[in-house]
């Protein structure tokens, strides 16, 4: 499987002319079929579709309960063309651990064909960073040969836009609503990629469907790791974010260009931005003004948001510039 080397460009905001045609080079096979019941303009469904293309056929998927499970497998139909299992909400990483162990031992014992099949566990933000965090931590710590991809649409969308620990500061959700006495969600988004780095996972990355080639390259890289890998993919949810479906891709791009959701990877401990560092981050308001969930915010809250984004971005850049890889540290 070849890895495409094109990278999106911060400066132009969109893909450069060369990148424009990169999409034509991807696997044309659709492993996530038409007829799924995701909302119009669902970024998560798009991200799943792209992930499957990057993974290819030799893959088994373990899916947590959530939007993507509900919209894809209404008995007697399935949108999946890859082998797929769903058990419950908090346990995709644990089910994936079992799938990985099962495939390994069955291959060793000659009960299935003697070739490598990748196990991939997937979940939404709720199923990953909240209720599934323990199972994820266990699976990553045990070192299963498994990729976990979190599709983060920043709230419990499947149950009606309740706040999760991945919900950004200030977003109005149904359980952290904006009101006379509340700015909406009061906490800063939990940094789960960083928690995965702390598990000594050899490959951790952030991604977004708005940068499809970057995302797919990361999936391919993670797939090639013989061990645990984690990708945190921002997935725009027009329904929950109260945005227009046509703006799905644009919103993902703005999340990156404002520095709210930087795209980076951590390979054997080494941090690297996977898009060029912009001269200057765009103001967060460019991103916020397109979404109903932030509409209530006043100057003060937006000011706090901007300052915190600047700080978090600086923290990341500090890691990018200072931290050496494990190999370098070993000398």
């Amino acid at each position: 499987m070849s890895t495409l080397t094109v990278t999106p460009n911060y400066a132009t905001g969109v893909v450069s002319n060369f990148d424009l045609f990169a999409g034509k080079l991807v696997d044309r096979e659709e492993y996530f079929s038409c007829g799924h019941r995701a909302c119009q303009g669902c970024g998560e469904a798009l991200a799943i579709r792209l992930m499957c293309k990057a993974l290819g056929k030799e893959t088994v998927i373990a899916n947590a309960t959530g939007c993507m499970e509900v919209i894809s497998t209404l008995y007697p139909t399935t949108a999946w063309k890859l082998p797929w299992i769903h058990v419950a909400f908090p346990n995709a990483a644990a089910v994936g651990s079992g799938v990985e162990a099962g495939l390994k031992v069955m291959r060793r014992k000659g009960r299935i064909p003697d070739r490598y099949v990748k196990t991939v566990a997937i979940g939404g933000d709720g199923g990953t960073v909240d209720i599934g965090l323990q199972a994820l931590s266990g699976a990553m710590e045990r070192g299963h040969d498994m990729l976990y991809v979190c599709f983060d649409n920043e709230a419990y969308m499947n149950t009606g836009i309740q706040r999760s620990s991945a919900t950004p500061f200030g977003a109005s959700t149904t359980t952290a609503p904006a009101g006379a006495a509340s700015p909406g969600n009061r906490t800063w988004k939990k940094n789960v990629p960083e928690i995965m780095v702390a598990h000594n996972v050899p490959y951790v990355a952030t991604a977004c469907h708005s940068y499809p080639i970057d995302f797919m390259n990361k999936v391919k890289k993670a797939r090639a790791v013989k061990g645990p890998a984690y990708i945190h993919c921002l997935a725009v949810c027009p329904t929950g974010w109260r945005a227009e479906s046509k703006d799905c891709i644009k919103l993902g791009r703005l999340a990156v260009e404002t520095g709210i959701f930087p795209l980076y990877e951590v390979e054997n401990g080494k941090y690297r931005l996977t898009v060029e560092k912009p001269e200057k981050l765009r103001p967060v308001t460019d991103y916020m003004k397109m979404q109903g969930r932030f509409r209530h915010l006043g100057k003060e809250e937006i000011g706090y948001f901007q300052d915190r984004v600047n700080l978090e971005f600086a923290k990341l850049m500090n890691k990018v510039e200072c931290i050496e890889s494990w190999d370098e540290l070993k000398g």
Binding site: E30, G35, H36, L74, T77, T78, W80, K81
Partner: peptide, 8 residues
């Protein structure tokens, strides 16, 4: 039947 959601 993989991908039979196409029937919808």
């Amino acid at each position: 039947e993989p991908g039979n959601a196409r029937s919808f």
